[in-house]
Design a protein around this nucleic acid. Structure first.
Length: 774
DNA sequence: ATGGAGACCTTTTTT
DNA sequence: AGGTCTCCAT
């Protein structure tokens, strides 16, 4: 543990103030790249060094990624014991923990399930169906948005129905019954002993509002509260923080109004603008020195954000070098755009010593990643896509998790519906509908009906009844093992005995799925082998709850995870691809920002109001400020969207960067990267612009034909494939055969690919090519 | 009850 | 283009 002086040593003046101002409200306005995370972590270290009990510190973040990073950095500063004792996590995960403990006061059990967005949507869909409403008029996504918005503003379904303005708005939109859906939705959640994401915040508020002893308990417990990314809080979050800190006012919020990009989720930028009103004695500190980026990048970003009307005054500056100008390239098509990016990375790597992981490719929408991926594979550049369809959202994983959930909570309706006939056991749609109607009619849970079909007069034939009861018996047998069998053993038992693994093994077209399930089991195993963390009474040290790595504990730990925890992350040197939203808080040496076109960025959805357009502009600001050394922006004249070719206009945002900070290349040839212009004049001496272009084109032609040569080879017969053989796959590129399983037409090969990692392939489909040796 | 063919809709962003 | 949903035939 460091002492107070050494903690402060490495900080600049405002950072020092922010770190050492511990008592009383503090607002830190942290410009991009100004060392925000550093301040937060050092502040916690400072508090601990001052002797503050780590159990009294609550640190809230928005994303799991941010929480993990903060935990790690504090860990390094102060050591494991103290770091673990600090309550640190996302809003949702922290309040979920509390609600599992206190939920009985609100009519929830300790086993309460959290519904993710898919679950919520599915539930809404079925309610809409049950109400005989037109699913086109009542689109589940839209209805959920309305409900979510209400909950984020702490409106109950009763408030919603009673509110004349809301009703008028819904009525005008032709959807007067959203309030009724809301009401039924809540009822079903309750019946399922489940909360949706918004409920975690909503019920935390209810707990603090209706139970004074709870308010007192948690105010007392958390004497020091830190909130990261405060500009992204919604009303529900804002009020929890306000209540918890009302007795001591030891609240430190850190944020940047210029980086508020989540208003679509109910984030209210006013929360940061109003902090002074809530805490008149609050101290405000601005962190304006940027340590991350070059002057060109900082200046360009400043110029862009100045176009917004709503903002707190702040002037970000840097002492870093001027740096290269921002390169902007226009291409003919999205695939050329992608190739230009890949080629530029390729050239960069050839000419300088740059690692793959120093590059980031950013885009507005996930759909844009595909073209980039293809061009990277062609160039044999390893990459990793962040976000998108995360591990826990994959079908096969959700199926397995659903079994876990139903084992822990029989009333979890969405899980039940998901797996009652998966793997198929002859319980079809008609039966399920009858069960639901029956359950609604008797005002009981679906589980109650299938547990005892005769009791509720369920109108299905006897074999079906038996199948239902067989299912119930099976689940009950799993539940019986919860306290005696650890998460891994039970998880494996479930997957095997239910036949999921067998089912997936039979699906020859997609062997990845089985692998994913196995990966899930591996991660459960890791969980069970982790060092036990028993909970104990903080003042006496008495162990209250002996740790046992049960399945419900495992589920608790992953239910709010959206990203796959990637263990190989640090080892693997790969180019990173992600949306701008998920890039927030991160930084990269070389950033490529693609698709700067009207209707894509800014998104066509955001053109309705100034506020929305300003949010898009903040998003652009976030994107620019991710870059440390170099920023390359591209826009394409055409792009495939929704399956057809569209013509695209250059984004208005590009005109907001003063020309003195940039190099613009119209009609860029896709082979010509940033070398052709000004970044690296020494490489080409005094050759003219067009000469360099010509050289580049020629080189690229050469490279391209070389690549072709490489790939030409014979398609391998099955018995030719042996371990350690280098092979080429049409989609995955080059790889090395690691292992062969099975015989004849069923032969499978485990191949380690250079760019996409390890895949198991069924050889009769894989069409592997053995490249000719040069 | 199941599976396949075709219609249909998507693309904002995340806990 | 690709996945999801619906409807129809078996």
């Amino acid at each position: 543990m460091k002492n107070l002086e050494t903690i402060l040593e490495s900080l600049n003046e405002p950072q020092k103030q922010a770190v050492s101002h511990i008592e009383g409200p503090l607002m830190v306005i942290a410009g991009a790249g100004s060392g925000k995370t550093r301040v937060l972590t050092y502040r916690i270290a400072y508090m601990l060094a001052k002797g503050i009990n780590p159990y009294q510190i609550l640190a809230l973040t928005f994303t799991n990624k941010a929480a993990a990073e903060m935990r790690e950095r504090i860990f390094n500063l102060v050591g494991e014991a103290s770091a673990k004792a600090v309550m640190m996590g996302t809003f949702h995960s922290v309040f979920y923990k509390i609600l599992r403990i206190e939920g009985e006061k609100l009519g929830y059990s300790r086993n309460l399930t959290v519904y993710d967005t898919d679950d919520s949507k599915n539930l809404i869909k079925s309610i809409i169906k049950e109400m005989n409403l037109d699913p086109k008029v009542y689109a589940a996504g839209h209805v959920l948005n309305r409900i979510s918005g209400a909950k984020s503003n702490l409106l109950s379904h009763i408030d919603y129905i009673k509110n004349p303005e809301i009703f008028a708005a819904d009525n005008e939109a032709g959807k007067p019954l959203i309030g009724e859906i809301f009401s039924r939705y809540n009822e079903r959640l309750r019946k399922s002993d489940a909360m949706d994401f918004d409920d975690l915040l909503y019920y935390m508020n209810v707990l603090l509002r209706d139970f004074p002893e709870m308010l007192h308990k948690y105010q007392n417990r958390y004497q020091y509260i830190l909130v990261d990314e405060y500009q992204d809080t919604n009303f529900a979050q804002y009020l929890i923080i306000k209540k918890l800190s009302s007795s001591h006012h030891n609240i430190c919020i850190v944020g940047d109004d210029a980086q508020s990009i989540y208003s679509f989720r109910g984030a209210n930028i006013q929360n940061i603008l109003n902090f002074k009103r809530d805490y008149p004695e609050a101290v405000t500190i601005k962190l304006e020195q940027n340590y991350r980026s070059t002057q060109n990048i900082v200046n360009a970003a400043n110029a862009v954000i100045k176009c917004n009307k709503d903002q707190l005054f702040k002037e970000v500056w840097t002492e870093n070098e001027e740096g290269n100008k921002i390169n902007i390239f226009q291409t003919n098509s999205d695939s050329e755009e992608a190739q230009l990016v890949a080629n530029t990375i390729f050239e960069y790597k050839q000419n300088f010593h740059v690692n793959n992981s120093q590059f980031a490719l950013l885009y507005r929408t996930n759909a844009q990643s595909r073209a980039l991926e293809e061009s990277l594979i062609k160039r044999n550049i390893p990459y990793k896509i962040y976000g998108g369809l995360s591990f826990y959202k994959r079908k096969e994983i959700k199926d397995v998790i659903a079994y876990f959930r139903i084992t822990i909570n029989h009333f979890d309706e969405e899980s039940l519906r998901r797996i009652i006939n998966y793997p198929q056991r002859g319980i079809g749609q008609t039966t399920i509908e009858k069960v639901i109607v029956c359950a609604n009619h008797h005002q009981v849970r679906i589980w109650n009906v299938i547990e005892n079909p005769s009791k509720f007069g369920l109108d299905v034939n006897n074999p079906t009844k038996e199948r239902l009861m067989e299912f119930v018996t099976k689940i009950k047998s799993f539940s019986a093992l919860l306290t005696t069998t650890d998460a891994y053993e039970l998880g494996k038992h479930i997957v095997v005995s239910v036949g999921i693994l067998k089912e997936l093994s039979e699906d020859k077209t997609d062997l990845d799925r089985k692998q994913n399930v196995e990966e899930l089991l591996d991660s459960i195993k890791e969980f069970t082998e982790k060092e036990p963390e028993s909970s104990f009474n903080e003042s006496t040290g008495e162990i209250i709850d002996e740790y046992f790595p049960s399945l419900d504990r495992f589920l608790e730990s992953v239910v709010l995870l959206t990203d796959e925890e990637d263990k190989e992350e640090a080892i693997q040197d790969r180019v990173k691809l992600m949306t701008i939203h998920s890039a927030k808080g991160l930084e990269f040496d070389y950033v490529f920002l693609t698709g700067l076109e009207e209707n894509l960025f800014p998104s066509s959805m955001s053109l309705g109001s100034r506020a929305e357009l300003e949010e898009e502009r903040r998003l652009f600001y976030v994107a620019i400020t991710r870059a440390k050394r170099s920023l390359t922006i591209t826009h394409s004249l055409t792009r495939y969207r929704f399956g057809s070719l569209q013509f695209c206009e250059k984004s208005r945002f590009l005109n907001e960067i003063p020309v003195k900070y940039l190099n613009y290349t119209e009609k860029a040839s896709m082979g010509k990267g940033i070398f052709s212009s000004h970044s690296s004049p020494s490489l080409f001496g005094d050759k003219s612009f067009s000469e360099v272009t010509r050289i580049r084109k020629k080189e690229n032609a050469q490279i391209a034909s070389e690549r072709k040569m490489e790939v030409i080879g014979k398609e391998a017969t099955i018995d030719q494939i042996v371990p350690s053989l280098v092979v080429f796959h049409d989609k995955f590129g080059f790889g090395e055969v690691k292992q062969i399983d099975g015989k004849g037409l069923e032969t499978k090969a485990v191949v380690q690919f250079e760019t996409v990692g390890t895949k198991t392939l069924l050889l009769k489909f894989a069409k592997l090519i053995i490249p000719d040796k040069k």
